[in-house]
């Protein structure tokens, strides 16, 4: 078996506040193969966005990556120097930002902003070639090449997001992290942008981590689905498998809480609230809300284990 493109091993990211350490990501491990789309879902505050920032090594104080490994293409990102990490960004791993509306420098033309990224990664292209490359990239994201000479405020939200995507793919990275790339857009534009991201992902054969909480969107677009809860990974499996037969009680509740067309107006949520990440409950973090919790769940942290090929789960009920 070949090495996975991305291997996350026991990653811990804590935010050190006056009251103590907030364990936003607490021992997360998973692998991602090249060219695969992974969906990362979880409630607000489950550590999804922290995961994304940690992968880019952009955790700001008081946050800190405590321990773990993030091996991308055989290189542990956490061992790289600042400068090497900077070079890795865009070359091997890119991010599509969450707030597309404000992610572009308001006082700079689009082409200049795109060029910045290429120039700072030792692109050997001449001025003419750079211009041609920018035109090509803009066309690839279904934008008029004329956009190059425009300023961000002259573009719509969807167009800005497309520009961000064009920048993210400009150095043809192996992995793109998209943190709720469509949350700021309306439903129609969301579909178009997602379709475009999917098309580019297939064309360039890149791996994608799609972060979000829209289970419907996930079901349609990703190959594998990872479920996070309170900073820990609960379950990860192929999308079809997980929707067909969720193993973890949290995943089961999450899927059953999706609105179904036949039962109009009937919604089932998950009772309770997410625990404080400052003082997470002992044992399984989900036991406070889990309908199937047993004594062991309150005492020991379940180990994230591979129960079938490519199917991992952290639950005493399954692994015991």
């Amino acid at each position: 078996m070949t090495e996975a493109l991305l291997q996350i091993k026991d990653l811990r990211v804590y935010y050190h506040v006056d009251a103590g350490a907030v364990r936003a990501v607490d021992g997360v491990s998973f692998n991602l193969e090249a060219g695969i789309k992974l969906g990362l879902v979880g409630e607000s505050g489950s550590g999804k966005s922290t995961m994304a920032l940690a992968l880019m090594r952009m955790i700001k104080a008081p946050g800190k990556i405590e321990s773990g490994q993030m091996i991308l293409d055989g290189v542990d990102l956490l061992q790289l120097s600042e400068e090497k990490m900077r070079q890795t960004k865009l070359m091997k791993l890119s991010m599509i930002p969450q707030g597309a509306m404000n992610s572009l420098n308001p006082v700079m033309r689009i082409d200049k902003q795109m060029m910045d990224g290429l120039e700072d990664h030792n692109s050997l292209l001449s001025k003419e070639e750079l211009t041609a490359r920018i035109q090509e990239l803009l066309t690839a994201v279904d934008l008029d090449p004329k956009v190059a000479k425009m300023y961000p405020h002259e573009l719509s939200g969807g167009m800005k997001q497309r520009v961000c995507v064009a920048m993210a793919i400009s150095m043809e990275p192996d992995l793109i992290i998209a943190d709720e790339p469509t949350s700021a857009l309306d439903v129609v534009i969301q579909r178009q942008v997602m379709a475009m991201i999917n098309r580019l992902q297939e064309k360039l054969g890149l791996a994608l981590i799609l972060i979000g909480h829209d289970m419907g969107l996930m079901a349609q677009s990703v190959d594998r689905l990872a479920v996070m809860y309170a900073g820990r990974m609960m379950e990860i499996a192929d999308t079809k498998v997980i929707f067909g037969n969720p193993l973890h009680p949290y995943t089961q509740l999450l899927i059953s809480s999706l609105p179904v067309l036949e039962n109009k107006g009937v919604f089932s949520g998950i009772p309770g609230v997410t625990p404080s990440l400052l003082t997470p409950p002992p044992g399984c973090v989900f036991h406070t809300r889990c309908p199937k919790a047993r004594d062991v769940c309150r005492e020991r942290i379940p180990v994230f284990t591979e129960v079938e090929t490519g199917r991992w789960v952290a639950c005493h009920l399954i692994t015991a």
């Binding site: 952009m58 960004k89 990224g117 700072d120 920048m167």
Partner: peptide, 15 residues
């Protein structure tokens, strides 16, 4: 956001 994205693009600090 545009500073965060600029960093995510791996631009040089000076730029």
């Amino acid at each position: 956001d545009y500073i965060t994205f600029a960093e995510a693009k791996g631009l040089k600090n000076r730029r």
